[in-house]
Design a protein around this nucleic acid. Structure first.
Lengths: 346, 346
DNA sequence: CTGAAAGCGCTAACAG
DNA sequence: CTGTTAGCGCTTTCAG
């Protein structure tokens, strides 16, 4: 049987109040008594019951996190860093995967409500989100449960994002500097609109026409399998004889799928098509060719999310002072873009 | 403020017991009363408090899971499948990452003890595990908390594993059939000993000498970065002029690192070296060349783990009847081994 | 410095 | 069918 504070009290011949005192290190307890109790605790392997504590403190020391999927390196890393940092601070993380499903099919958020999490970390909170989800979100807000999101949202929820716009411009300008005149783009709802805007802005800033034929971006449905998506999109582009020599993909998995397809179509990367990805997943540097991509500072973003959330939890003064924290990102140049295009006069 | 059962009772003009009845769907409640209470619940957004329930039922409906890392597709998928299946059954999963660290540096297990998880799923439980970890494990057993492990262990803990031995033999025999006479092996403590044994058995079964020079296997330390490990091991093999034409890697990440290194050394896969991996991660089929590998039935393994664990929790009769459930695995043949070696007489 | 007692939100007898 | 009540294990006044 699992031991309770009473067992320890009996074992040490003291009251449960005193046991509680030494367990929590509060109040002063005579040294001998303390040691006696400690011995009893060790002997019985006593571990205080979180549930009982929770009832009194009104704090579960539990944080909920929703991510679309876990088997995607970006989310897995984020969750891992967050979990480890929270553990150090004495909190427990519960991760749920949404698969972009509605709350009724996949009750992530209501679980968090039942468990009375002290805070919520939201992976993707897209704008076209199902009605019921924003309803649930409202509940968290009504109950004063702090929220931090990894995608920008309205509802004055603090968000932590990479500066996608700026870095996308940088990525596309890298292709432009290499001499590419026709640059295609593959985006998706799930990777956000900003990378597409960055692409468009880069072209405009460089006085290049935006050719809608070279832009594939499903803004309605979420993409479940990015590589497959990249694979199909680029095939479509090539098989429809769209002319392009550069390709900007809104994440690395899409880029890898694209390269795979190009390879099968007999097109070489980078000599036939230069490809840029986004995220810098582990595989980016390992792929052949190694991917030129934009590196997100995941660890820093995770740390910031935890800091902000715990600050709001433990010091709820400025709770709903919304902040949008945007992290600069770094273009990592590898092999998938090759050297400047030869047939370039200048 | 967050609403309690009392608020609902007051709102609906009934006793808290009746509210409890409709919330739990037990006992019969007059339809009108039930509807009145339901309206009050909806109006107040009442959500029952898990902690309070836990105190009574002695069930947290929480499962703990330890994995070495989450940013490894194998563990991420396992965790994801398990989380989703548990959610459907009304359980919550808490995942902790051990990084193979000791419990004192990284208190995963003690968190689970505090939270009084109903069951434990252990990712890797290696034999050389730190003292303190097996001590913690004992505590779970003493407290009758069911455990399921994804690596074979003694302590009569139920384990769910792939049939590594058989499938490794199959993988190596694939290389042998392709005409490879010199086959190297890269293993590690973290991927278990069975894949190495399978490699050795395959050679012996086919009357081929086992050349220790072609076997790299660190059995002491855990590998944190498999691709890097594969990269370095194969470089070592090549730079020391070890002769081999086939290579069996104890997981796909090692294989990918190996291929990357071979590529940089000017060696082509599969024409110069044929490579086989293990696990069939998503990237295996996407890599260039696509990896021939052994596919683990992760989803089935996850489902089985959940079934067994919940069975033990909800029906604790045959609790410590140890089972070792081993799943057959499938060799997936792709491009990294190429066709039969040409300079082969037969 | 230590003990007695109230009560957190809920469920499960036990009465009516 | 519904209300009253006794705890679950713990923390926290409030007295000694």
């Amino acid at each position: 049987m699992t031991k309770t504070i009473k067992d320890v009290a009996k074992e040490a011949n003291v009251s449960i109040a005193t046991v509680s005192r030494v367990v929590n290190g509060k109040d002063r307890v005579k040294k001998e008594t303390r040691e006696k109790i400690q011995r009893a605790i060790d002997k019985l392997n006593y571990v205080p019951d979180q549930a009982a504590r929770t009832m009194i403190n009104k704090k579960t020391r539990t944080i909920g996190m929703v991510v679309p999927v876990l088997s995607n390196e970006y989310w897995a890393k984020l969750a891992e860093f967050i979990q480890r940092k929270l553990l150090k601070k004495g909190y427990t993380l519960i991760v749920s995967t949404s698969y972009y499903e509605s709350e009724s099919d996949n009750p992530c958020l209501s679980t968090f409500l039942e468990r009375k999490v002290d805070g919520l970390i939201a992976g993707t909170l897209t704008k076209n989100m199902e009605e019921d989800i924003s309803e649930y979100l409202e509940r968290f807000i009504k109950q004063d449960i702090p929220i931090v999101s990894f995608s920008s949202v309205k509802n004055n929820i603090t968000s932590i994002t990479g500066d996608d716009l700026t870095s996308s411009i940088e990525a596309v300008e890298h292709l432009i500097r290499l001499g590419h005149k026709q640059i295609a783009f593959i985006g998706s709802l799930s990777t956000g609109i900003e990378r597409e805007l960055g692409y468009r802005n880069a072209l405009m800033l460089n006085n290049m026409a935006v050719n809608e034929d070279l832009i594939i971006s499903n803004r309605k449905d979420h993409v479940r399998n990015f590589t497959q998506y990249g694979y199909h999109c680029v095939r479509q582009l090539v098989l429809e004889n769209k002319e392009f020599s550069g390709l900007f993909c809104s994440n690395d998995l899409i880029a890898i799928g694209a390269i795979k397809a190009l390879d099968e179509l007999g097109l070489d990367v980078p000599s036939d098509k230069a490809v840029v990805g986004f995220d810098d997943i582990d595989m980016a540097g390992l792929y052949r060719p190694a991917l030129t991509t934009v590196k997100q500072p995941i660890e820093e973003m995770a740390a910031t999310a935890v800091d902000i959330l715990l600050e709001q939890i433990e010091n709820p003064i400025e709770r709903y002072l919304q902040k949008n924290i945007s992290f600069p990102m770094e273009l990592v140049i590898r092999q998938s873009c090759g050297s400047p295009k030869k047939n370039l006069t200048s």
